[in-house]
Design a protein around this nucleic acid. Structure first.
Lengths: 192, 192
DNA sequence: TGGAGTTGCCTAAAGGCATTAGGCAAGCAG
DNA sequence: CTGCTTGCCTAATGCCTTTAGGCAACTCCA
């Protein structure tokens, strides 16, 4: 009964790797135990339950994304910043599909707030600082970008844009052009 | 052993209702059997397996959405059509959160093509007919709308926009303004 | 109307994941 | 070296999925 040296951190990191390999949905306490060559019950001293494990993986992914975002945003503004952040999301999703799926997991508000949620919100607002948007339009724009990135990554990860032309790469570039143009020329409310 | 009169259709419909009540993730062969007061094994003559059941619920939802979309789009063009379609997605998600989640389930390409996927693509292109977009920009725009609707509905369903101001309703209206403006003034590619 | 056949729902069984309770031994402190 | 903490284990329960095989309820046709 050699001790393996489990810790919550090691479990979460291994869980994230597992997610990237076999998909976030397949990340299970049992599979993780198998990976450490340890009995399932042993994990329960380090992780509350399955949901807790998945939540922690999501928080790890959000943290990593925020780190990358902060690095990418440094010294950039306007469209440059927009494209940099967009590519961070996208590249992360390609390198770490499982983690990226985890990052889109629904978290209860307190958990999200305690984690990197705040950093993400701040970063999005930092991008918008390069455009001339007053409140409440800035918030609308935050939600637009959030929805678009979330949706695009979901669809691309799900294979929605493969096997069809033009390729996803081109669409991505052009849509960033389009969003930049939109943010520069944000329309006034239409007549009700 | 009175016969209950199970059919694939009844199972799928009941599954969709179950999804709306308890969430798509909780839709399980066992739960469905319980709802019909029938043993679990009995469902397996009508549905291949759990994944098949969920897929069929997704296809039902896509079909319903396409029906509503077709009705909403009739006789509308331009922004009017855009808003009508957007509201179809959104209202459906509110009335039938479980089905709406199902509709965003990842389907393999053949299944999607065999189902209402084609109708959805056609409808989106019909909306864009009111704007002056040539290929490949039209395809880019299809993907933009798809990503945005998908993402927005996901976030809203997950509670992302509740408990914060401005309320989701206002953002929704303003973002439709914004998308309309963008489609009317679609930018040329930026210099590489 | 009364079989004969089909079909629908059942029993039985095996395998997997999640979770909890309680035990033993490995590693640390003195 | 002795005792204590703590980490991993055994054991057990409950729920879900899926398959195989059986009996009874319908159907249909003579």
């Amino acid at each position: 009964m050699a001790r393996v040296g489990l810790t919550p951190e090691r479990l979460v990191r291994a869980g994230a790797e597992l997610a990237d390999e076999v998909g976030f949905d397949e990340v299970t306490v049992s599979a993780l135990a198998r990976r450490f060559d340890v009995k399932v019950a042993s994990l329960y001293s380090h992780v509350r339950n399955s949901h807790d494990l998945r939540t922690r993986i999501a928080l790890l992914a959000l943290e990593e994304l925020a780190d990358r975002g902060a690095a990418a945003l440094a010294g950039r503004a306007g469209k440059d910043a927009l494209a940099a952040m967009a590519n961070v999301y996208r590249d992360y999703a390609r390198e770490h599909p499982g983690r990226a799926t985890a990052a889109r997991m629904r978290l209860d508000p307190e958990t999200a707030a305690a984690g990197a949620g705040v950093r993400h919100a701040r970063m999005t607002r930092a991008i918008l600082r390069g455009y001339d948007l007053e409140e409440p339009d800035q918030t609308h724009a935050v939600r637009l970008l959030g929805s678009f990135f979330h949706g695009y990554v979901s669809l691309e990860l799900g294979g929605g844009f493969s096997h069809s032309l033009p390729d996803s790469e081109e669409t991505w570039t052009r849509l960033l052009d389009a969003l930049d143009a939109l943010l520069r020329n944000w329309p006034a409310p239409s007549a009700p």
